[in-house]
Amino acid sequence: MQFTPQHYFVLKLFSALGCGLVAGVFFAFSTFVMNALARLQPKEGMTAMQSINITAINPLFMGIFVGTAVTCIFIAGASLLNWYPSKSAYLLIGSLFYLVGAFGVTILFNVPLNEALAIADPDSANGASLWANYLANWTVWNHVRTISAILASAAITIALYE
């Protein structure tokens, strides 16, 4: 199968939509989900977030989250191989925002926090302390992911029209 301009357009479109969809999920957590969990008693908030973290690992969400990273790798590479000044710059910048700021931050910061939360005992004093730290740190990194995914979606969308 030969890689055609139509295939490339579909990859760019999927990337823009994927970045936007992921940004929406992250935005929801940044603007109200984490605030709602913080209003609960530590045991209840931890238990709810532990459940969210388990159910988030599903084929549909992970397919979009990881699939967008894969398409961003392809369009970043293609933009470097076929450089067109403004279009390629938007594609490369958008891809990097997603790969580093959304996907990379998730792997380096949010996932380790989730793993620590997963083994914490919600009934313990240590669990309550971990929860308070988790809320602050996880949310800060989620803001980074949100902004990065929004900027990625915007840059790749602009490249569709250049």
Rank of each mutant, 00 (worst) to 15 (best):
M1R: 11
P5G: 03
Q6A: 15
F9E: 10
V10C: 08
V10F: 14
L11H: 06
L11F: 15
K12P: 02
K12S: 12
S15Q: 06
L17C: 11
L17Y: 02
G18M: 04
C19T: 06
V22H: 08
V22F: 04
G24L: 07
F26Q: 10
F29I: 13
F32P: 06
V33F: 12
M34K: 03
A36P: 03
L37W: 08
L37Y: 09
L37P: 06
A38N: 15
R39V: 06
L40Q: 14
Q41D: 15
E44Q: 14
G45F: 02
G45C: 02
T47Q: 15
T47Y: 11
T47H: 13
M49Y: 09
M49S: 12
S51T: 12
S51D: 02
I52Q: 00
I52T: 09
N53V: 12
I54W: 00
T55W: 02
A56I: 14
P59G: 13
L60M: 14
F61S: 12
F61P: 10
M62D: 04
G63W: 05
G63I: 08
F65W: 07
V66K: 05
T68P: 07
A69E: 03
V70I: 15
V70M: 12
V70W: 03
C72R: 05
C72Y: 04
C72A: 14
I73W: 01
F74C: 12
I75S: 10
I75V: 15
G77S: 09
A78T: 10
A78F: 11
S79P: 05
S79N: 00
L80P: 00
W83A: 05
Y84L: 15
Y84A: 15
P85C: 00
K87V: 13
A89G: 04
A89Q: 07
A89R: 06
A89F: 08
I93V: 13
I93H: 04
G94D: 08
S95C: 12
S95D: 12
F97H: 13
L99N: 07
G101N: 08
A102H: 00
A102I: 01
A102D: 05
F103T: 05
F103M: 05
G104H: 06
G104C: 07
V105R: 06
I107A: 11
I107V: 14
I107N: 00
I107L: 13
L108V: 09
F109K: 14
P112Y: 07
L113V: 05
L113R: 10
N114Y: 02
E115Q: 14
E115C: 02
I119H: 06
I119V: 15
D121S: 13
G127E: 10
G127L: 08
A132W: 06
A132R: 12
N133I: 11
Y134F: 14
L135M: 11
A136Y: 14
A136M: 13
N137M: 13
N137V: 08
T139P: 01
V140M: 08
N142M: 05
N142F: 04
V144A: 00
V144S: 02
T146F: 04
T146A: 07
A149I: 05
A149K: 03
L151R: 01
A152P: 03
A154F: 14
A154C: 13
A154Y: 11
A154R: 00
I156C: 03
A159R: 06
Y161R: 11
Y161C: 01
Y161K: 09
